[in-house]
Amino acid sequence: MTVRNSLLALLGERPHYGYELRQEFEARTGSTWPLNIGQIYTTLDRLQRDGLVADAGADAEGRRQWSITAAGRAEAERWLASPVERPAQGRDELAMKLAIAATLPGVDLAAIIQAQREATARTLQDLTRAKVAGGDPSSPEELAWLLVVDSMIFQAEAEIRWLDHSEERIRRSDLRTGGRVPASRAAARTEARR
């Protein structure tokens, strides 16, 4: 879905051939999400089937060019203008793990949180390192890439903050009950947060 809309937006700029599209995409997203060329052609075929792009013939070197249709342009604009819907819940393994662990006896929640925090911190450090090692931040490609890295940095940061918050919450709860949180209450609380 995301790749489809991204390619459509790139074609809105000017016609491209398949390999060129892949290069453009990767340059502009800092090679964060590698695409194989087959995935590009499959997506282009689907876009053509939906009447959003058209085959613009071969260029001087015989490469097949693709151009956007009016419907495709409208679709690309709609994509750019509309907010991204994130999956509201589910598949968040970390939250799930903590929720379950909180109800299990004999599990060191603090250790789980610390382990996760260190892992996320390392990701964050790597991302920051990658960002610092980047080139001239004024070029459009570099800017695009910085945006992507920053997005990931902020997500990692959010996770650490959430871990800090959870740790504090658990610590308070431990102080209050003098030990393990009753399973039913913990579950109820976890449920309430969701």
Partner: peptide
């Protein structure tokens, strides 16, 4: 955390101990 990430090493401190 975002600022700490600029470091080569992040040390986590809690209650006066490195955790």
């Amino acid at each position: 955390p975002r600022h700490a990430a600029w470091a080569d090493r992040i040390v986590f401190l809690r209650d006066g101990r490195i955790v």
